[in-house]
Design a protein around this nucleic acid. Structure first.
Length: 708
DNA sequence: ATTTTCGAGATTTTT
DNA sequence: TCTCGAAAAT
């Protein structure tokens, strides 16, 4: 742990309890500690009840850690419910308030994967080419559609007794969502905002209740997140935001760090003293980030002493690189470090494969964080689908997932037939199947058993605890038998892990009478990457995105190859913005390290185009005297990098010059014909006039009229 | 006629 | 490792 005392600026931040406070906190400057201490200060010194403080974090894991820190500092035993992510807060809010807009209390939250499934269905129906528009891209359009007019969207499609009429693929998608009472992650936010804005008594209750609101990692909040923050602090006006513009790495997902930079605060505090890294490591970090043009200058300085120089190693092949990392870790462990003190970070998750092979070879224990996350594993998703269907017979998505798991000779064709029948009867797949069980196409004993199982479970769910229902479903559906015959030990173990999870949930919620199947499913929908192996002593492998907020004594950044990191795809799509975000990502990676940092790269990433073998431009940006170079990288390699960067720049330059001038008529899928008013080079988007409305749109969603 | 199986191909980042 | 398409098996 770090030193128990806080420095003067940290104390200033902790004790700033009036109005809007902004803390710009560099990497490793102890911002999590500040948040925890402030929470404790509010409770211990000012005498607030924990229930009147909202502390928002970026991930569930961060919330978990924050709670633990706080519980050590606060004398009052109760654990606060409102230390959570924005999404979890919205769920808690909606569970109480959603009835106001005619939704059932047991609304479900749609898994992003399932959202894709729905999207494909809607796209197919409208003959949208799946090769040209992927499900992800389609969903972005749906999200855009909702975001442009959230009030209209909710009033038109989600308030009771409304019937969406226009036959558009997007509307079709929304209709499917409505049918299952599903909300996606954006909806959670929109609905919360809508209720706060349209129901004065709900607004009064919540804004008065939440006396103090603090937010971590605000640089990754989107404009909608900020709207929510302002809405819930409208009464007391106590908003405390902490972030670091240099660590903004989620702009591709809609985050808007500029709001944080421009935030008008009563109190402004900068924490630039770093407690984490050695001077050598910090110098490298500062050297890299200073290459960004769009930034508020801020140099971190450290209080630590130097230990080892930062090492940059070049290798001939990807497996050499992986093997060298593995043997370095082995030596380090022999010198007395624990395996868990080492982390290997990389840009894209598929890089982990080669590294895993090398670690297995050297017999080193490791965990891949979020490679396949626990709740994304097939067997877990299947099990949850059984639970969901038992909870809600209208859940067609879950139905489709499990009707043939284990095999009941009910494949794609049978589902298609059933779907047609269900559409004509306006009923769900499960109900349709039940009513038409005598139909020769469906009449099988396995199918009859399936229906009985689900129906019985639904009835029992009202009487028995969750764990019993879950156990029955897993046993009688045949999932466990299926895995046992295939001797899938690991998957079976995962299922028993899930069961112990459920028991834990049960005991936690027993006294609130909240241990129902539906409340479990709601909770689980957001806990998608809770780390089960957190406590175990293993080498950690993870993407840089996942490493945010963590720290490790020894850090390896692998795969620093131009094209992979920075990712050329990102740069091609977002040009300058893309490059700067990649550089911030590099900055995040480097600042995870406490004592030792190894950067490595190899010529092994050559693909068909033969370009992925030069060292990343980020390596060249670090002054030579800051690095200890190993593996004799040929100087021609850096020439290659330079040529590649120049080529890419030229490519994106011509793109920029080819932009449409004012007056050009373009067509948008949803809004129809529009006229270009202006090009915003910074945001790489156009201001387009549609009738009397002007919208800001990215080029990708616009098509030149003449081309159609 | 349907379902299953087997092999080839692809993969940024995620609440 | 997972997804998708074509041949084998029911």
């Amino acid at each position: 742990m770090t030193q128990p005392l806080l420095n003067t600026r940290q104390i200033e931040a902790v004790e700033s309890t009036e109005g809007r406070v902004r803390v710009v906190a560099g990497a490793g400057s102890g911002k999590t500690r500040v948040l925890a201490h402030r929470f404790a200060f509010l409770v211990n010194e000012l005498g607030l009840s924990p229930g009147n403080i909202l502390c928002l974090t970026f991930t569930n894991k961060a919330a978990h850690e924050m709670k633990q820190r706080i519980s050590k500092l606060v004398d009052r035993g109760s654990v606060n419910d409102f230390v959570c992510t924005i999404h979890s807060f919205c769920v808690k809010f909606l569970r109480k308030e959603i009835y106001r807009i005619g939704f059932p209390k047991n609304f479900s939250i749609i898994d992003p994967e399932d959202a894709k499934q729905l999207a494909r269905q809607a796209m197919e129906e409208f003959g949208i080419d799946r090769k040209k528009t992927t499900a992800e891209r389609f969903l972005k359009q749906v999200a855009g559609f909702k975001g442009w007019d959230p009030d209209g969207y909710i009033q038109k499609y989600f308030l009771p007794h409304s019937s969406p009429e226009s036959p558009d693929a997007i509307v079709r998608h929304i209709k499917l969502q409505l049918k299952y009472f599903c909300l996606d992650y954006d909806d959670l936010l929109y609905f919360t905002l809508y209720i706060l804005q349209h129901f004065p008594d709900a607004n009064k209750y919540w804004t008065e209740k939440l006396n103090y609101v603090m937010v971590d990692e605000v640089q990754d909040c989107s404009g909608d997140d900020w709207k929510l923050l302002h809405a819930i602090t409208s009464h007391h006006g106590n908003l405390f935001v902490v972030g670091d513009p240099d660590q903004a790495i989620y702009e591709w997902r809609g985050a808007n760090p500029k709001i944080f930079v421009d935030f008008h605060a009563h109190t402004d505090i900068i924490l630039d003293r770093n407690y984490r890294s050695t001077p050598d490591i910090l110098n490298v970090a500062n050297a890299i980030i200073s290459n960004n043009v769009k930034r508020v200058p801020k140099d971190l300085y450290t209080v630590k002493m130097n230990e080892n120089p930062v090492i940059y190693r070049h290798e001939k092949s990807e497996s050499d690189e992986a093997e060298h990392i593995a043997s370095t870790i082995k030596e380090s462990i022999e010198e007395g470090r624990r395996p868990s003190q080492h982390a290997i970070l990389y840009r894209a998750s598929h890089i982990s494969r080669r590294l895993e092979q090398a670690l297995v070879k050297k017999k080193l224990p490791y965990t891949v964080w979020g490679g396949v996350k626990f709740f994304e594993r097939k067997e877990i998703k299947d099990a949850l689908a059984y639970f969901r269907l038992a909870n809600n017979h209208n859940d067609d998505i879950s139905f489709k997932r499990i009707i043939n798991v284990p095999s009941r000779k009910f494949g794609a064709k049978s589902i298609e037939k059933l779907q047609l029948l269900a559409d004509s009867q306006g009923s769900s797949l499960f109900e349709t199947l039940k009513l038409n069980i005598d139909n020769s196409a469906f009449n099988r004993s396995s199918i009859r058993d399936f229906i009985t199982l689900i129906e019985q479970s639904t009835l029992l769910a009202a009487q028995l605890p969750v764990s019993d229902i879950a156990e029955t479903l897993l046993q009688r559906s045949g999932i466990t038998d299926m895995l046992r015959t295939d001797s899938e030990e690991e998957r079976l173990e995962n299922l028993s892990e899930l069961m112990s999870y459920i028991s834990e949930f049960e005991s936690r919620n027993l006294r609130d009478d909240n241990a129902t199947l539906e409340s479990y499913l709601q909770e689980v929908a957001l806990y998608t990457n809770l780390d089960l192996e957190n406590e175990k002593d293993k080498v950690r492998l993870m993407t840089i995105h996942q490493s945010k907020g963590l720290e490790f004594p020894v850090v390896f950044v692998a795969g620093l190859t131009e094209g992979i990191f920075p990712s050329h795809r990102t740069i091609r799509e977002r040009r300058l913005d893309g490059e700067e975000e990649e550089r911030r990502l590099m900055y995040v990676a480097v600042t995870r390290a406490e004592n030792m940092l190894y950067l490595s790269e190899s010529e092994g990433y050559m693909n068909e185009k033969g370009v992925m073998k030069y060292p990343s431009r980020f390596i060249s940006e670090i002054p030579k005297e800051m690095l200890k170079v190993e593996g004799n990288p040929d100087s021609s390699l850096f020439e290659g990098t330079r040529a590649l960067v120049a080529g890419l720049n030229a490519e994106t330059q011509t793109d920029a010059e080819a932009h449409w001038s004012t007056g050009t008529i373009v067509v948008h899928k949803l809004f129809g014909e529009g006229r270009i008013e202006e090009y915003d080079a910074k945001a790489n988007s156009y201001r387009v006039r549609f009738g009397n409305k002007v919208r800001q749109l990215i080029p990708r969603v616009l098509v030149l009229k003449e081309k159609i």
